[in-house]
């Protein structure tokens, strides 16, 4: 399943992408879907669900905040993931 970690701006998403890439995890920056809980005009980092735990530990270590985590359902809709 695809997971999207939402950040407050594209720069934060880019910083997260760079930090996570250093750990060997590939993630793609996407514009956050409109209408999500944490607000519009945000950016997200999309990755395989299996990499979520490592990604979150990298963000915690760097003190880089994220807004929410979404999972993309097969029908294209998003649901919030509670960690």
């Amino acid at each position: 399943m695809q997971i999207v970690i939402i950040f407050k701006s594209v720069t934060y998403a880019q910083r997260a992408e760079r930090l996570i890439a250093k750990k060997g995890v590939t993630a793609n920056i996407i514009k956050a879907p409109f209408g999500i809980k944490s607000g519009s005009c945000a950016y997200g980092l999309r990755m395989d669900e299996r990499n979520l735990s490592l990604a979150l530990s990298v963000l915690k270590e760097a003190g880089l905040p994220y807004r929410e985590i979404l999972a993309k359902r097969p029908d294209g809709m998003y649901r919030e993931v509670v960690v």
């Binding site: 701006s9 594209v10 607000g39 005009c41």
Partner: peptide, 14 residues
């Protein structure tokens, strides 16, 4: 406009 926090009319603080 900053492309962030667009639902708010106040400037982002970050």
């Amino acid at each position: 406009g900053t492309g962030s926090n667009s639902e708010e009319i106040t400037q982002p603080d970050f």
